[in-house]
Write a protein that binds this DNA or RNA. Sequence first.
DNA 1: ATAGGGTTAG
Length: 805
Amino acid sequence: MAVSPVKGFPLPLGIPFQNQSILQRPSSPCPNCNRSDSQRQQLVPRPSQEFPISLEEIRQIHGHMIRTQFRQTHPTAGHLPLLHSSPAAQLNLLISSYIKNGRPEDALRMYSLARAGEDAVLDNFTVPSLLKACAQLSRIRHGEEIHGFVLKVGLHWDVFVQNSLIHMYSECACADSARRIFEKMPERDVVSWSTMIRCFTRSRLFPEALNLVREMLLSQIPPSEPAMVSMLNLCAELGDLSIARALHGYATKNASPEAMGVNISTALVDMYVKSGCLASARRIFQLMGEKNVATWTSMVAGSVRLNQPTEGLRLLAQMQREGVASNEITVLSLAQECGATGDLKLSRWAHAYILRRGFSLSLVLLTAMVDMYGKAGDATSARILFDRMPDKDSATWTAMLSGYVKIGCIDQAFELVGLMKEAKVRLNEVTMVSLLALCREAGALELGRWVHAWIGRQGLRQDAVLATALIDMYANCGDVEAASGIFSAAGGGGGGRDVAMWNAMIGGLAMHGRGEEALRLVGQMEEDRVAPNHITCVAVLHACSHSGLVSEGKAFFRRMERELGLTPTVEHYGCMVDLLARAGMLDEAHRLIETMPLRPNVAVWGALLAGCKLHRNAALGETAAKRLLELEPGNCGYSVLLSNMYAMARRWGEVAEVRKLLRETGARKSPGFSSIELGGSLHRFTMGDDSHPQSPQIRAMVEEMMRKLTLAGYVPDTSAVLLNVDEEEKETALALHSEKLAIAFGLISTAPSALIRVVKNLRVCGDCHTATKLLSEIYQRDIIVKDRNRFHHFSRGACSCGDYW
DNA sequence: ATAGGGTTAG
């Protein structure tokens, strides 16, 4: 994710960092007891026994302390000399032992016992341990209680206590509380700074985190090793290579690659991986002396992520040979990265690897695999895994749901929502985002509004992602005003808007043909110091294309590289070709394809072909169609267009040839669907669908529609119907097109004022457009049709969509 | 006694 204030950020990298953390204690006396630190420490006898002590011993002491209520009434157990020390020291020892033995729950239970007994037993040594337990368990309520206790008994002067509070709030995702403590600290040590940097990084408050790094270095505080790691982690999240290189240089100035320490080296590897520079990551990796699981994990996952899956698998094997065992985190990130590639074969390999290595299939790991199959497009495998899982949590359900939505299995997704309701799955922010994505795909505005209201009722935190999902849902379901409302509200709060949110709003305006507004928004975005990214540029070019803003689009395309520092990708060229071709500048569009530095893909040639059909240029269209058939031999849509093109040029021999080829290959168009939402329920239709309960009435309505259309002078354009049947059957097919069924249902609806809002997942069908325009005039009704990512508003026969037809 | 690499669902 790009954040604008980061660009060219000057890091004052002059101070050497400390390899060992230097513990700095404030030397001022405690304001409460007026004793100096050393005096206070003498008051607290130190335990003589060394860590770690066994769990069994801890249980014994625990039992003893409960019996004696933390008082030294029975100094019985001679082999446990620590019982002779003060209650506070005993409690502290016990709590830290529990934490060291991985039992933070017991540590907190001890705290409750202590509270039930005597407040005073907790001191400034005990509190940090307890807060660490709260942090590990994300127990914000416990943490706040301890915070209250700290204020009550006056321990807040202690830097260690304050640092621990910051850490606790950081781990509980309460950046605001952490920041309040940090800002009020009269004295800060390097731990305060690094913890706060980590906190801001975790909360994705990158500008704040970077400011802190700068302040810290300007205050001449030498970063410790953990501080260095925090800074590297921050940079990993920023993904900014120039800052990454600066920090890398800074780290090497202070330690040779061999002596750097495995934590910093691993953080460096991870930073380069996340900044997309595998070569640099590999260089560090090869120079490293000691490597651990984390180092290997980072490198394996990074190779898969950065398009080198074979290298990733090779490293996995090498890791094993060198005697480093992969752990659950290794396979979790493997599954995640394999899914992200969308490569089903690779994902299956990862699944097999996990089974072969005999990993216990935990809830988290299985959820990751469900998600992986969903992302790789294999809904069946995902569902099989999902159904076999004995336990599922909201993450599992959400993974399955988002998989269905991503693959486009709308029916299964809705079925799953029903099952979720039955299973009483707890819904959280992430589930809501998936549900909103489902609403977007299905065009279910009412359901989307319900989700929105539900979010408010449940008091779910409306973070940037959720707000973006809402904007996206409203825009894609046709309520661009509601999207705009959410967008404005998100700007008012302190959170600010990130690139994704701006992109969603700009894209939303683009698909409603509001190009000028979209362009204005980019200007505002830059004033807000949010840097446009590749996706922003796609949205802007889209907006220009759909609003006929040719010169503006060209200007933006030039600006992209010169001023925004973004190299156009093949998608941007596709948008430019679309912009030019739609406007009839076909030769210029063709020249752009010929001169572009990238290999043109389907979208690029497809945009040219659509323009050729629109402006009736058969010669160039033929070129485009041939290229498309080379790229995607199985796609019959292009063959149909090509045959139409030949027909236009009266080259009947070639028309027959293409048709014959189509018949032989048995190419079929995947069935499209249209949906309409009325009275809060969603009705979906496919071509010739008669499964709807009101199907007879709908059929009757379609007949009436067709009669009236013919009377109005409508002649069906059957050229886009792909069936090897005679013309009459084609006309029937066109009449029973899913969009017409949906519109018919809208017209017979008992709520006559209801807006007819049809969403279809088909490619633009020129005939439907013409017919719909006429229908809106005949029936004097507003009809809104969404076709892929474009809205067409028909009002009494006029279409305001900005597109050329 | 406090901070530190790799960690499921958007």
